[in-house]
Design a protein around this nucleic acid. Structure first.
Length: 684
DNA sequence: CGGTTAGGGGTTTTT
DNA sequence: CCCCTAACCG
């Protein structure tokens, strides 16, 4: 039984009476086991599993806990538990009530936001102050949604009072953004939580008996408010103040710090025994984290006995020497590769490490990130299917048509407007059987000085394409009147037309993926991408490289097809790709992780690299040195047996010198006190 | 000239 | 991947 393996303090927490319980669980003290034990305790005492809600930081974490429970309880009991990230739980909850939810990637929404921003002509405003850029403003807005419940302008002006003269413009953009999202049927990550919160409020709460929250220290104000809205009679939160590393995402340390005040009668449990790391690793971590102000007193006890390897500092002269030397060491170690992690503060370290490992033929895996779902060939397939499901999705359409030669985002948008116009608002009707032959009014030329507004676009002569090798129904299509369409553009449209016919019919996600993969349109995209990837410095195409690129693209297509098999509704498949996509990691071998991504994981052997001032701690930091220190604490406490900390004094490529990170001094690995660099970096 | 498209250079961290 | 700049088109 999961409960029998718990120690006394874990057991006490897991079996605590219903009500408000906070478990302060330092790194490696068996947080997961305690949550699993808690659920086991509830189930054993006859709790209704469908009334249990488990909120975790990643879907993987939820999956692991559920898997552990499956070993002790019948599957049909455990599977009734509502478990997942705040976002995936909200999605499921909303999906059960509404069927038109199209979850969009943050990058997509940022593009939409920018297009609204750019309609404002800030350069003509009578102020010297520079407005925030579109993407910065967008970032601020998402942070606001996560961090505050007050009106946007109040929150914003408190932070940036000097932007008061621009506030009306900013709010205007935000309001239009919200309206546009609504009209396309788009939903952001934040919207999932906001909408669930709003609807739960309207329904006057929900009927979960027990809500459990993992990684409580990283919940933000919005998530905290959502928990409050749920009004659970019993709440079990587990977290560690010292591992709060998501301030940039609005993580509100007050959630954990003021738990006892906000929930009257709350019990606070503390898990003090660390079972994960060896004594010297633990003492190093504690030496550093002790410099942060304590909220809850914490006295960590070492649970492990026996031989231990002291943490080791590795110093190199050059950045790449560091990566290569570590790769060599990894090659010779006896630790299994999957039990090794290389951890870094920012993703820019990853490429060099990956390359150095690959050079020695060592397999490694990186989390989502630059991987599968960011690949253009994957995005294209998903965009086409997205459009088939939701023809109102202009963003998807634009991305597709940007592959037409000579068509960029502006022309693609016009083509979209035309096609919808031809089909009386129905995009695919407009493609296949246009109802009108007139071009719609397109974007007027906005040049006020010259007095040219509301100019219609010149109608192109369709006879331009009289001799083009496309079927007659394409040559006669009203779209060809668009003046900016080139011959290659028309050929592209013909392929899109052909695919449209099949798409409208395919229902299962797998069928939809297959349809796209076998289309001539996709063949065109594959050709473009593989050619691009095989282009040498001198502009020539390396045919072998092109074949290899094509192979890789086809493999990803197959992978996507297999993923699609797990779903029977296309809309769910698409949303799942957005919701869980980033968590997927490809392949086997050494783990390459950012500190943030390493949260909650553990490894025999850990390398924390690029520990130089400026990078770790990050100099251009928006948060505090305390947060950076917590990041360091999280990174080193991932290690069970062996911990290596490394840095290089110089980067040949960037011609930049580096100084050792202050955390290496604080850890006692370098003698003396850290002296902050006085000489400034190059002037702005 | 203005609006676009296309390509090169630098990156904090996530659901 | 986002921003900037250089070419390109009308």
């Amino acid at each position: 039984m999961p409960l029998s393996t718990l120690n006394a303090e874990q057991y006490a927490a897991a079996t605590a009476p219903s009500g408000y319980n906070l478990v302060i669980a330092s790194a490696g003290t068996g947080k997961t086991s305690t949550i699993v034990g808690r659920i086991a305790h509830l189930l054993k005492n006859g709790a209704d599993p469908s009334k249990i809600l488990l909120l975790t930081f990643t879907n993987k974490a939820a999956g692991e806990m559920i898997t552990r429970l499956m070993r002790h309880f019948p599957q049909k009991t455990v599977s009734q538990i509502e478990a997942g990230t705040f976002h995936s739980v909200s999605y499921r909850w909303l999906k059960a009530r509404h069927d038109n939810i199209t979850l969009k990637q943050p990058s997509e929404l940022r593009t939409l936001f920018r297009s609204i921003y750019e309609k404002r002509n800030f350069t003509r405003m009578p102020i010297e102050m520079r407005p925030f850029s579109a993407s910065h403003l967008y970032e601020m807005y998402t942070l606001y949604q996560n961090a505050s419940t007050e009106p946007f302008d109040e929150w914003f002006l408190r932070k940036y009072p000097e932007h008061e003269s621009l506030m009306d413009a900013y709010t205007g953009i935000v309001e239009e953004f919200e309206a546009e999202k609504e009209s396309y049927g788009f939903v952001s990550f934040n919207d999932l939580l906001l909408r669930m919160k709003r609807e739960v409020e309207e329904e006057g709460g929900c009927d979960f008996d027990e809500v459990l929250v993992d990684e409580y220290q990283d919940t933000n104000t919005l998530q905290g408010a959502l928990i409050d809205t749920l009004r659970p009679p019993s709440l079990f939160c587990v977290g560690d103040y010292d591992q709060s590393i998501y301030a940039f995402n609005g993580a509100n340390i007050d959630n954990i710090a003021t738990f006892a005040q906000r929930y009257p009668g709350a019990r606070v449990h503390t898990l003090k025994t660390n079972y994960r790391s060896s004594a010297p690793i633990l003492s190093l971590a504690n030496r550093v984290i002790e410099r942060n102000e304590r909220i809850y007193p914490k006295r960590l006890e070492v649970g492990r006995k026996g031989k231990a390897y002291p943490p080791k500092l590795l110093i190199y002269n050059d950045l790449f020497e560091q990566y290569q030397s570590i790769a060599h060491q990894i090659r010779h170690t006896h630790t299994p590769k999957h039990d090794i992690a290389v951890i870094f503060r920012n993703n820019s370290s990853a490429d060099g490490i990956e390359a150095s490992l690959r050079e020695l033929g060592i397999a490694c895996k990186r989390k989502g990130g630059t991987g599968f779902f960011d690949a253009k060939e994957v995005k294209f397939v998903l965009d086409v299917i997205t459009l088939a499901v939701n023809p109102k999705d202009m963003m998807a359409f634009i991305h597709i048509f940007e592959y037409a030669p000579g068509v960029g985002s502006a022309v693609a948008k016009e083509i979209y407007t035309c096609l919808r116009h031809f089909g009386n608002g129905n995009l695919f009707e407009g493609v296949i059987s246009p109802k009108t032959t007139e071009l719609p009014k397109l974007n007027p030329v906005k040049n006020v000085q010259l007095g040219l507004f509301d100019d219609d676009v010149e109608v192109g002569s369709a006879s331009r394409f009289a001799a083009l090798d496309v079927p007659e129904y394409i040559r006669n299509h009203p779209l060809l009147k668009h003046p900016k369409l080139t011959q290659d553009g028309v050929r592209f449209f013909e392929k899109f037309y052909a695919l449209s016919h099949h798409l409208v019919r395919s229902h299962s996600p797998e069928k939809a993926v297959r349809t796209v993969l076998s289309s001539r349109l996709y063949a065109h995209v594959i050709d473009m991408l593989s050619t691009q990837r095989a282009r040498l410095k001198n502009g020539e195409i390396d045919e072998t490289r092109k074949d290899e690129a094509r192979e890789r693209i086809l493999r990803k297509g197959n992978l996507l097809r297999n993923l699609a098999r797990n779903y029977n509704e296309t809309a769910r498949f698409l949303n799942a790709m957005v919701l869980g996509g980033g968590e997927l990691s490809e392949g086997e071998g050494v783990n390459l992780l950012t500190v943030h991504a390493s949260k909650g994981l553990e490894f025999q052997e850990v390398y924390v690299v690029d520990l130089v001032d400026g990078r770790f701690p990050n100099r251009k930091m928006m948060s505090s040195i305390e947060e950076e220190r917590r990041l360091f604490y999280v990174a080193v406490t991932r290690a069970k047996e062996r911990l290596y900390l490394s840095y290089a004094k110089y980067d040949k490529l960037k011609k930049q010198e580096y100084q050792a990170s202050q955390f290496l001094y604080e850890a006692g690995l370098i003698e003396g006190e850290f002296a902050p660099p006085q000489e400034k970096r190059k002037r702005a």
